[in-house]
Design a binder for these strands. Structure first.
Lengths: 336, 336
DNA sequence: AGGGTTTCTGTAAAGGATTACACAGTGAAT
DNA sequence: ATTCACTGTGTAATCCTTTACAGAAACCCT
């Protein structure tokens, strides 16, 4: 730790200059085979590892990307993360994962990484970008930190976005319910002020209106994407004078909470009320009844997002990927 | 990005030396109020942020800790992570979360962070430490990187460990099943070579033996902590000539998978077979029937672990915390 | 007023790596 | 034999901060 071995030690042992050691490590083919061998020997003998701080300082980059997640415990994000990681590690980049806990202050703190040399670019899964950064981007459209929003788009399309078309996917979901003969369909939405929430509400409304149903068949309950809010919604629904035929939930966690609470209270799913989720997390499959939901190609989304960011950074030979493959699909199981 | 503002710019504008700027930022009370004001003005005016790489290089530490997680998508870990993060951020440390995917090679790669200046210490949630590091620790017991193992202890008690007593907690679980009158109890274990797996098998055996049951009432199925392995176990169980009265699963994910598959095949839980899990993840509650399980104080475990690490690092005024509060508790719901 | 503290600030040396530039050596071509 | 091109290596500047040390200024005390 303290008596760390530096490049100087290696160069002394190998009998070459530090420059040569550095070159051997980064560009082995520019040095003589003999030199290379001497250096590698010295490296192994000493157990030398390059000091990242010194490297970053000199190279003026962190070789790391930042990923902001609103809630790391939400299983929805983990597969996206794994896709990101996969691509990033291929490009020799470290992935810094930060849990913003949906807290603006924390988010702002982390985005500072983009300016203090901790990260070269950021992937935003949290649908929020601090004003200060938005302004920075506005002020210097040519030369601002590389940022890509993932899954949740940002309000103003100020940075590239990778994700499915939520409005369209939701329409598909609601159309499925309509096709099953349901008419009075409640939508359990996400928290206010969230893009996913509003997109999915839009999709819901579109589908309802398109099917010629009048407004009285539309009904919204606001949740917050948590299991608990799904459970809470059950109370609201049971208390309704006219109960809905079906509930379309803005994510799976709420759907699972809802089903659990409904069944506990003696309401059968799907017979009394059909329930649909969104995301297709792993526990959707093990729900009883198994959850009908919208599947997102999460791993692929993560990979695409990372590639887009790397393309922006000019790292590796990544090009802006073709995102046309990011299609959501409906997975019909038994809950609706 | 390229035209970054440095401490020199700030010092020029404020009309002081860089030393004074640095002091103002780190030790505001050693400079005059007047100077402080001038510096802070310059900082705000320029939007200066300290360069982490330069800082780390100079200070010879990363101000970051590494957390190795075997599988970030496992919800069990997320609350631990949140506890860690909570403590670390109070000490102004960045938490680097790394998903090892249970891959030794990846793990080894990440542990390198301890030597290349990216991290000052590590929290291991993966129950595995590369041989190279074990050796380093053995060779210099006084002066080795700070490491704490969390949840899963390491084979040899080479580093401090924070977590519950798995053997005892498992005994408690199995005793619960026995008290309910179950005799033939199957244990769905974790993957081989994992400490959690072996500890829980031990606890299971202890309880079975202590209750005076003979060996024929013991039965093991090996899983791997995944939902899928729980589902697979259902087949094994249904195929058994003499079906168990109860199944104790080594974690909740497997229990949920098992229940789902069992119910699908017409086996009632808990009436035909009782099922218990371990961990008390959030979805345990929404399982149908709600899952009886062992609750771990995960957030507290994370906090304790972080404090222990910080104490080792001598950061902040943390002392080795008293870990006596880390008790697992049984949560009785309906599945057993 | 003079000496002794104390408080504040500046100078300059690290910290460890990368890389532009220059130089030496080799071999080929004329 | 001289020039040229090329290859491989070394020198030294640079990235941005922090901090030991020293010097200056202010204050207190007798």
């Amino acid at each position: 730790m303290n008596n760390r071995v530096t490049i100087i030690d290696v160069s002394n042992i190998a009998g070459v200059s530090t420059a040569t050691v550095s070159r051997t490590l980064h560009n082995p083919n520019v040095v003589t085979a003999k030199t290379r061998k001497a250096v590698m020997n010295a490296v192994h003998q000493t157990g030398y590892t390059q000091n990242t701080a010194a490297q970053n300082l000199r190279q003026q980059r962190a070789n790391a990307i930042l990923v902001l997640v609103p809630d790391i415990s939400n299983t929805f994000f983990s597969e996206i993360l794994s896709g990101i990681e996969h691509v990033a590690s291929q490009a020799n980049l470290t992935t810094l994962i930060a849990d913003t806990l949906n807290d603006a202050h924390r988010t702002e703190n982390f985005t500072r990484y983009l300016f203090n040399g901790r990260a070269d670019g950021a992937l935003l899964l949290n649908g929020y970008l601090p004003d200060s950064i938005v302004e920075t981007i506005r002020n210097s459209p040519q030369n601002h930190p590389a940022i890509v929003s993932v899954s949740e788009a940002l309000d103003d399309q100020i940075v590239p976005h990778i994700g499915i078309d939520n409005i369209q996917a939701t329409q598909m979901a609601v159309e499925h319910l309509l096709a099953k003969g349901h008419r009075f369909i409640t939508h359990l939405s996400g928290p206010a002020g969230n893009i996913l929430t509003s997109d999915r509400i839009k999709g819901y409304r579109n589908a309802m209106v398109a099917s010629g149903l009048n407004d009285s068949d539309q009904h919204l309950i606001q949740g917050d994407f948590s299991i608990a809010s799904g459970e809470a919604a059950a109370n609201d629904i049971i208390a309704m004078e006219r109960r809905p035929d079906a509930v379309f939930c803005s994510n799976d966690a709420m759907a699972i909470g809802l089903i659990s609470a409904l069944v506990n209270r003696g309401v059968a799913v799907p017979n009394d009320i059909a329930v649909m989720g969104f995301d297709d997390i792993e526990f959707a499959r093990t729900c009883i009844p198994p959850l009908t939901t919208i599947h997102q190609p999460r791993r692929r989304i993560g990979e695409m997002a990372a590639k887009t960011l790397l393309a922006q950074l000019g790292i590796g030979d990544f090009e802006m990927p073709d995102t046309s493959s990011l299609q959501a699909t409906l997975v019909e199981r038994d809950s609706a």
